[in-house]
Computed example of a mutant assay.
Amino acid sequence: MSAYSRDELIAAFAGFEATVDRAARTRDWDPWVDQYSDDVTYVEHAAGTMHGREQVRSWIWKTMETFPGSYMTSFPSLWTVVDDARGRVICELDNPMRDPGDGTIISATNISIVTYAGDGKWCRQEDVYNPLRFVAATVKWCRKAEALGTLPDEAAAWLRQYGGDR
């Protein structure tokens, strides 16, 4: 049994989401990372397992300041499940990219499992997704921006490296 009530988990996750939303808007990733315990374990299936807040901080800053992460505008949860017996919240997160120039919204989703540590901190996060879906969404975004004449250089370089043939 979890030491945390359902109400505490719901309130803590609402705070987590608000902080992540603010980080996405301001592009200051430190408050997001500061929500993790010092000894957090972060499992990211494409990037590997990170141990400790500072390792997560380095990864989040690099990921979110490099294309395509730098073009993701928010990370809203589409649904959540509170597992109060285990002190966890499971959610599906959307990862929409900025408008390529015609109002199109292109995104991919992932499932995140976050485990609460108390006092507004989270001691574990695991992101579960198919990386190829993120690649496909990013290629789609690049192709759309290319057709609109709005493809930035960093996205063009990414497309050359990962986009494959037309």
Rank of each mutant, 00 (worst) to 15 (best):
S2D: 14
S2G: 11
S2V: 11
S5D: 14
D7V: 15
E8W: 14
L9Y: 14
I10F: 10
I10Y: 11
A11I: 07
A12N: 07
A12G: 12
F13H: 13
A14W: 13
A14S: 15
G15M: 12
G15D: 14
F16Q: 05
F16L: 13
A18P: 05
A18L: 15
T19N: 14
V20D: 12
V20G: 12
D21V: 06
R22G: 14
A23K: 03
A23W: 01
R25V: 12
T26K: 05
T26A: 09
D30W: 07
D30C: 03
P31N: 02
W32K: 03
W32F: 08
V33A: 00
D34F: 02
Y36M: 12
S37Y: 09
D38G: 14
D38L: 14
D39N: 15
Y42C: 07
Y42P: 03
V43G: 12
G48V: 08
H51I: 14
H51R: 14
G52C: 06
R53A: 04
E54D: 11
V56S: 01
R57E: 01
R57C: 04
S58P: 03
W61S: 07
M64R: 09
E65T: 08
T66N: 07
T66I: 02
F67K: 01
F67M: 02
P68R: 01
P68A: 03
S70R: 03
Y71H: 08
Y71T: 14
T73A: 06
F75W: 10
S77A: 13
S77Y: 08
W79V: 07
T80W: 03
T80Q: 09
T80E: 10
T80D: 07
T80H: 05
D84H: 12
A85C: 09
R86T: 11
R86P: 06
R86Y: 10
R88H: 05
I90M: 08
C91H: 03
E92H: 09
N95T: 08
M97T: 00
R98H: 03
G101Y: 02
G101L: 03
D102K: 05
G103F: 04
I105C: 13
I105H: 06
I106L: 01
A108Q: 04
T109C: 09
N110K: 15
S112Q: 15
I113L: 12
T115A: 08
Y116K: 14
A117S: 08
G118S: 08
C123N: 15
Q125C: 06
N130V: 07
L132H: 10
R133S: 09
F134T: 05
F134I: 04
A136W: 06
A136C: 03
V139S: 00
V139C: 00
V139W: 00
W141R: 00
R143G: 00
E146M: 10
G149A: 04
L151F: 12
D153E: 15
D153K: 08
E154D: 15
A155I: 01
L159R: 01
Y162V: 02
Y162H: 05
Y162W: 04
G163M: 03
G164D: 07
G164R: 05
